[in-house]
Design a protein around this nucleic acid. Sequence first.
DNA 1: TATGAATGAGTGTTCATTCAT
DNA 2: TATGAATGAACACTCATTCAT
Lengths: 226, 226, 226, 226
Amino acid sequence: MAKTHKPSTPIEPASSGEGRGAPPAASYRAERAAERRAAIVDAAMDEFIARGFTATRLDDIAKRAGVAKGTIYLHFKDKESMFEELIRTAIVPLVGRLTGPPPPGRSVRDAIEGFALTFIAEVANTRRADIVRLIISEGPRFPAIADFYYREVISRGLNGMRALIELAIARGEIRQPELARYPQILVAPAIVAVIWKSLFERHSPLDAIAMFRVHLDLIFGERSKS
Amino acid sequence: MAKTHKPSTPIEPASSGEGRGAPPAASYRAERAAERRAAIVDAAMDEFIARGFTATRLDDIAKRAGVAKGTIYLHFKDKESMFEELIRTAIVPLVGRLTGPPPPGRSVRDAIEGFALTFIAEVANTRRADIVRLIISEGPRFPAIADFYYREVISRGLNGMRALIELAIARGEIRQPELARYPQILVAPAIVAVIWKSLFERHSPLDAIAMFRVHLDLIFGERSKS
Amino acid sequence: MAKTHKPSTPIEPASSGEGRGAPPAASYRAERAAERRAAIVDAAMDEFIARGFTATRLDDIAKRAGVAKGTIYLHFKDKESMFEELIRTAIVPLVGRLTGPPPPGRSVRDAIEGFALTFIAEVANTRRADIVRLIISEGPRFPAIADFYYREVISRGLNGMRALIELAIARGEIRQPELARYPQILVAPAIVAVIWKSLFERHSPLDAIAMFRVHLDLIFGERSKS
Amino acid sequence: MAKTHKPSTPIEPASSGEGRGAPPAASYRAERAAERRAAIVDAAMDEFIARGFTATRLDDIAKRAGVAKGTIYLHFKDKESMFEELIRTAIVPLVGRLTGPPPPGRSVRDAIEGFALTFIAEVANTRRADIVRLIISEGPRFPAIADFYYREVISRGLNGMRALIELAIARGEIRQPELARYPQILVAPAIVAVIWKSLFERHSPLDAIAMFRVHLDLIFGERSKS
DNA sequence: TATGAATGAGTGTTCATTCAT
DNA sequence: TATGAATGAACACTCATTCAT
């Protein structure tokens, strides 16, 4: 009954007409609404992750969020659009952090390793891993989600990776020019780690970071020191 | 909507059995029962793949299989055991082919490449890719499936891979001894290819075989010719 | 699985055209049919008693009788007529014994006591008690059964009782002439005993015979000795 | 078909309850809920009486009660607990009236006759007779019902009767001390009357009250006048 | 005659969605 | 805005009955 985890995503209220700078006194209602919405989003995420789209009951979401069932319909048109909106808002915040900053003065390997560590720490080892699994699960039934995800995350991410790889090739860090054609190879172990966590962690724990380092050694050549 | 693929698994009738004094030659009844069962299995696989476990309706399976709803219950106890049995019988036949034969005189790379080509041809580019996705999707809700799959497929497969890697290290084909600790790296691109096919093939087709060859180049060093 | 109780009623084969004196050699089939029918009747009785008409499954009857489900339909038109026929054949044999013989030289009390002891021994303390309960249960839904039972058992039985009561009044054994108008009073404790056995025997066992003797004492006056 | 009787039991809403700050006066919602629940209880009683537990369809109950099928599940967990709860609430109110008040200054016979008249008027000649028949019918399949009924009704009722009988013996109204051991005899004709009404009233009407008076004459001796 | 696989209408139960309060 | 009782379509599963063997 008790909710112990924090909302996975910062949510902005979408219902009221008041902007950010509305008088704080009058916006009490809007704040409450935003809180409720956040609670619903958070509860829904948990339930969808645990049961998948179809098997999730709005009743359970409402109970977990501490609101009445009807309240959900004040924030979302129906179960399906709630799900789609959830997936969107859950993933977008990640993209900026992962593809955003280009490499400073460090080696490309360090940059990629930094991204990978961030990804593994913030995705593979958190509830977000299950969101990725959820996208894999429900994607085919929600073309809109697959489309959105491909457009906003996959293609951007791969382009970012490709740019890094090309830079590394130019710098001589990577000697496999073909790799630029398949940036998926670069992230494949991270994807596998995410799936592994969801399915087999209890059968045999996996040290995603160590695995990824070995993978980088394959690509960049073994590290001299460290 | 059209069913064009062949039944994914050869199924033997499990329930009927011929009457006491029946001629040992396959009786007409037993044959018919086996046919019906195969039709149900095939139809169920299609539906489960298309909709996931919960959203699949037995009515649709029956309609697609061309039998009455009640007939399903002559072959399976309930929806859940049907699903579990399907997953099992769909995957097991693969394992033998993929882990079975140890490398003859060829190089380890050739052996692995052979396996990978088989895997990609028979899984990534067929309906079985969706079965893998189904396992990823429903695994967490069907611990029995995750258990079975880990025991029968994953651990065996990884052990096979590890043995090959160690052989390659001994022979000097691979220079990264750490790779033996993470055989997952070896197969990661194949997994990613499977997922890609299910979700993004229509956004951007992926040449799984070419990708895997680049991956092998990373591991074994670039091929001189070919 | 094993059937240990004996068939509750002697059943005559009703299907073949052969009379009783048919050549014993040629009647093997008829005998087998009669056996099967008896097994079905017996199994059906058990199941109907245990579950009532609607909740009884023909599958269970067939299994218990050791025949195939279809075989039942060779002997009975459908579930409903099977039930009605069962009730009829189960009750009729009793009527003769209970109302049949008029009192010889003994006192009326002894005659009634003899009947009552027979009834209690052969009904209240056997499976037949449950048949009575079954009639009470299903009677309203099977008017044909209530009609039949009233005609063949109740009215005859009450008339027999009434005759006995009037005889006892004429002889001075009973001093309550009104009793002849309500022969039900005479048998009421036996009915109550039957119901009690079915419902409350495990809560508090009831000595039906002793109770009935006390009841007879009320009617005939206390017995001088015993 | 027409529903003319009043709901058999005053029911209080068990599930809804008024919101936190709701006025303590019975809210409109709570009233409506109680009404609906009463309608369901009433309709269910009718259907169960007419068809027995298994043959009764929730669809019919809902239709008769004028509610949707799902509404039933707002008040009862499932068909079985609905049935058990119905039986309980249908019987309990009777017990108080029947066993409650000990005899004032009147003769024991008058007290018992008073009880019997009440019982016959309120049970044998009303729908409650069918409830008794229902208990007889379904008791063996619902041990919880038989247990409850034995505990709350039978054992209390018999104890009450026994106390009355012993009082009558002490006062010299009854000369059969053995009767105290079988209070069932006292009520047997009432039970028989109840069953008779359900099964054979249309074949031959029974004047339960007159019959019971004759029975009392047997026990207490014939009444001087009347 | 006997079988039991196959059928499909029927039933209990669930749950997304609505709407009076 | 928030509620949660009410709805009713939908679905898993059952079982009396049929019929090809």
